[in-house]
Simulated scan of single mutants.
Amino acid sequence: MGFYDAFKDALSVAQKADNVELYRQLLDLSAQALDLQEENVRLKSENAELRKAKDLEARIIRHTELYITLKEDPDDLYYCAHCWDIDRRLVQLSCDNSDGTFICPHCHTTGIFNYGKFQSTQNEISEMGPYCF
C-alpha cells in the first residue's frame, strides 16, 4: 500500500468517526505532503542538471587561446571559452580554415586556432606589399 492509499484510508476513518479536528489535521498533512512531493521533484531535477553540468565541465580542455574543446569529441569542435566562463554555455566557434582564425557568433571573441595557417597568411600579406588592396 502506497502513501496515497494509506492517507486516503486514514481520511476515510476520520470522516466516519466524525472527528472534524482529526479530519482537518489530516487535510493539512496532505497539503504538506504534496508540497514535499513537489519540492522533491524539483530538487531531483535540479540535481540532475547539476550532475550534467559537472560531467560536462570535467570534459573541458582549455587551450592557450580563447577556445575550449571537449575530451573524446569525435568531431573535435571548438567552443568559445568566454561564453563558457560567463554563461556555462557551449557556443561553437566559426573557424576560418584558410587563415586559422575563429570568431564567436555570440560574443564576437576572436582568436587564432591554427598558428601555422595564420602565420602563413600573414607572410603572404606582407609579401604583397602595402598597396596591394
Results as ranks from 00 to 15, higher is better:
119 Q>G: 14
22 L>F: 05
99 D>Y: 09
14 A>Q: 02
49 E>S: 13
78 Y>Q: 08
77 L>W: 04
97 N>E: 12
106 H>A: 11
72 E>G: 11
33 A>G: 07
63 H>L: 03
128 M>D: 09
84 W>L: 04
61 I>K: 13
38 E>C: 08
69 T>C: 05
100 G>A: 05
70 L>Y: 02
88 R>E: 03
81 A>E: 00
109 T>Q: 10
70 L>I: 03
79 Y>W: 06
93 L>Q: 04
108 H>T: 15
27 L>T: 06
64 T>W: 02
51 R>E: 02
57 E>A: 14
70 L>K: 03
21 E>L: 07
121 T>W: 07
28 D>Y: 06
117 K>V: 07
119 Q>C: 15
22 L>E: 06
59 R>K: 14
54 K>A: 11
76 D>A: 15
107 C>G: 08
59 R>M: 09
40 N>W: 04
16 K>S: 04
27 L>G: 04
38 E>G: 08
127 E>G: 12
6 A>V: 06
91 V>C: 06
115 Y>Q: 13
64 T>G: 13
103 I>W: 03
31 A>R: 15
86 I>L: 06
34 L>G: 15
88 R>H: 07
118 F>L: 03
25 Q>Y: 08
53 A>F: 10
91 V>I: 08
52 K>R: 12
83 C>M: 08
10 A>D: 02
104 C>V: 05
42 R>C: 01
87 D>G: 10
54 K>L: 02
112 I>D: 01
63 H>V: 07
13 V>M: 02
60 I>V: 03
125 I>T: 15
83 C>F: 02
65 E>C: 02
74 P>Q: 10
126 S>R: 14
91 V>T: 08
26 L>R: 06
36 L>R: 05
69 T>M: 06
60 I>A: 00
125 I>P: 07
87 D>C: 01
34 L>H: 12
113 F>K: 11
39 E>H: 08
29 L>R: 11
77 L>G: 12
70 L>S: 04
53 A>M: 11
72 E>H: 12
58 A>K: 11
82 H>L: 04
95 C>D: 01
92 Q>G: 15
112 I>Y: 04
18 D>W: 04
97 N>Q: 13
46 E>V: 06
19 N>H: 04
114 N>W: 01
106 H>E: 09
13 V>P: 01
81 A>Y: 00
